[in-house]
Write a protein that binds this DNA or RNA. Structure first.
Lengths: 147, 147
DNA sequence: CAAATTACGGACATTTTTGTCCTTAATTAT
DNA sequence: ATAATTAAGGACAAAAATGTCCGTAATTTG
């Protein structure tokens, strides 16, 4: 559904939110290994998340790494999609029509309009923290094996 | 959500189902123009749909073109996704986890499992014919302007 | 049979996405 | 200060997706 880069971003941010704090930062290596993403590519993505919309923060040097503020943890997961420029995926007509609308619907419009808002709502109502907490409590998992 | 190629495929097949018959075939030019897709690229996609899963048929020469059998019209739209190798999009974990499952869920799994089956069901229950008929009756549209 | 029409198939080109590598900058510890 | 560590940033590379072009094959019409 999303680009690989976006999947990595979602996993990375959730992982960081679960494991890190301002005192305990996470290194690129540790993050990439945990979520099963290529290290240098992940570096680019984390950069994108620190600059721009500033979902996460970072510091350089020994004991440096990535972390996320308590404030950012309260952001909806949707914010990560926005930071990656992939929130449009959820808005588009499923057949790719530019003009698809309630008054000029594509033939799947009236079906899809029952589903699309639920998808959007999921990303809007679930916060980064809520997903991190699910992992923390052992109810779900974010680690992944490569390929 | 899907590749451009898949969007074009969906639109093209629905358009063909609405406008054509064995007696009246549609030329590549006409199809590409109607659905707002680049002509040569569309040619490749239509080829893919005639060979392989054989969703549509074609004949060469004057008055040749593309058409779809009444039998194929009864196929679910899902068959087009399969022909394009994009049905996997609907099956995947939304975070891209290889091992995401009911027993080892990603942190969005229990939310997404309420939505994903609806999406799949939409493509499985709607037939090519049913969408073509919607357009035929003027209740929806499949034509598109380029970008 | 010849000419016109139309899809087919292969090669090629461009753009986007994914991924790597290497140097630099910032920070910390010794 | 020096060295070690870590992210930042730029250049580059590979793969996939998107798109074009052109000659060929099949079919129909005259």
């Amino acid at each position: 559904m999303f680009l690989k880069a976006t999947e990595y971003a979602l996993r990375a941010v959730i992982f960081i939110a679960q494991k890190s704090s301002v005192e305990k930062k996470l290194g690129l290596k540790e993050i990439a290994k945990a979520i099963g993403s290529p290290q240098p590519f992940t570096a680019k993505i984390l950069q994108q998340l620190t600059s721009g919309k500033r979902i996460i923060s970072s510091t350089r040097g020994p004991n440096g790494g990535f972390y996320i503020s308590e404030r950012s943890k309260m952001l909806p997961v949707y914010a990560i999609l926005q930071a990656m420029g992939e929130d449009v995926i959820l808005k588009k007509c499923v057949l790719g029509l530019n003009l698809c609308s309630e008054t000029r619907p594509c033939p799947l419009h009236h079906q899809y309009k029952l589903i699309k808002p639920r998808l959007i709502k999921m990303f809007e109502t679930k916060t980064i923290k809520s997903l991190a907490d699910e992992i923390q409590s052992g109810n779900s998992y974010i680690t992944n094996k490569k390929s």
